[in-house]
Design a binder for these strands. Structure first.
Length: 159
DNA sequence: GCCAACGTTGGC
DNA sequence: GCCAACGTTGGC
């Protein structure tokens, strides 16, 4: 089983939107970065879990845990000229973009902010989220990082 | 709103 | 294949 982190701006699609979605499940679509796509297309497996991260907010933070319930399939938003994710270079015979489906497992008991994660950068090791200038919207999380973050969830923030 | 990081595009 | 221009991301 692999662990991941998925970024989303809550103004576009936040954890509240996922909670409100049918079966608390959503296609993770609109990813238009090759490295992020490759993770989803090549490495996302049924049952993999991912941290749900809110970006572009006053306090960017981890807010939930989701599970992969469908492996990669065509991201048809790329075919729709009316979609903000439209990409005329993608078609069914020359498929460029993929999506997966994820289902909410649960919210975190408390949001864990980026600032808090940075305080634990030594324990987290080489964490893609904390790498300088990282803008990847889909990134891997090691089993050790995953376990550490879930332990952190149970701890009152030491500030 | 600013700006650094960095991916993509396209001319050559 | 190089690289400048440009666009986007995302923290602050």
């Amino acid at each position: 089983m692999n662990y991941w982190l998925l970024k989303s701006e809550p103004g576009t699609f936040g954890i509240a939107d996922l909670e409100a979605a049918p079966d608390q499940t959503t296609p993770w679509e609109g990813v238009r970065n090759y490295q992020a796509r490759n993770f989803m297309r090549d490495d996302f497996r049924l049952g993999d879990q991912a941290l749900f991260y809110h970006s572009g907010t006053a306090t960017p933070a981890l807010v939930g845990i989701v599970e992969v319930v469908r492996e990669a399939y065509p991201d048809v938003t790329a075919f729709d000229p009316a979609s903000p994710y439209y990409d005329p270079a993608s078609s069914l015979v020359n498929l460029r973009w993929h999506r997966v489906d994820v289902r909410l497992i649960r919210r975190l008991r408390r949001a864990i902010s980026l600032a808090e994660l940075k305080q634990h950068s030594a324990a987290l090791g080489d964490f893609a989220l904390l790498r300088r200038g990282n803008r990847l919207s889909v990134l891997p999380v090691s089993a050790a990082q995953w376990a550490f973050i879930l332990r952190l969830e149970s701890v009152t923030e030491a500030l």
